[in-house]
Computed example of a mutant assay.
Amino acid sequence: MTPEDRLAEAAVLLRRWPTTQARLRERHVEGPDGRCLGCTSATHPAPRWPCTLALLVTWSPGPT
Rank of each mutant, 00 (worst) to 15 (best):
M1E: 15
T2R: 14
P3V: 12
P3C: 09
P3Q: 13
D5A: 14
D5N: 15
R6A: 15
L7W: 02
L7T: 05
L7M: 12
L7C: 06
A8W: 01
E9R: 12
E9N: 10
A10G: 04
A10W: 05
A11H: 04
A11L: 10
V12R: 14
L13Y: 12
L13D: 13
L13F: 12
L14K: 03
L14W: 03
L14C: 06
R15F: 10
R15S: 14
R15M: 15
R15I: 09
R16H: 14
R16A: 15
W17M: 14
W17I: 09
W17E: 14
P18T: 04
T20V: 15
T20C: 11
T20N: 08
Q21D: 07
Q21H: 07
Q21E: 06
A22S: 08
A22I: 05
R23G: 11
R23D: 11
R23F: 09
L24W: 00
L24D: 00
L24N: 00
L24P: 01
R25L: 06
R25D: 02
R25F: 04
R27M: 09
H28E: 02
H28M: 05
V29W: 02
E30G: 04
E30V: 08
E30C: 09
G31A: 07
G31Q: 03
G31F: 03
G31I: 04
P32L: 10
P32S: 11
P32D: 12
P32Y: 03
G34M: 08
R35I: 02
C36V: 03
C36R: 00
L37M: 08
L37Y: 00
L37Q: 08
G38M: 03
C39H: 01
C39F: 02
C39I: 02
T40W: 06
T40Y: 05
A42D: 10
T43L: 10
T43I: 11
T43D: 13
T43N: 09
T43A: 13
H44N: 09
P47S: 04
P47R: 02
R48W: 08
R48F: 10
R48M: 07
R48N: 08
W49S: 05
W49P: 00
W49L: 05
W49V: 06
P50L: 07
P50N: 11
C51N: 03
T52D: 09
T52L: 14
L53C: 08
A54H: 01
A54I: 00
A54R: 01
L55G: 02
L56T: 01
L56E: 00
T58L: 10
T58C: 09
W59C: 07
S60F: 01
S60E: 02
S60P: 03
P61G: 11
P61D: 13
G62Y: 04
P63V: 06
P63W: 04
T64I: 12
T64W: 15
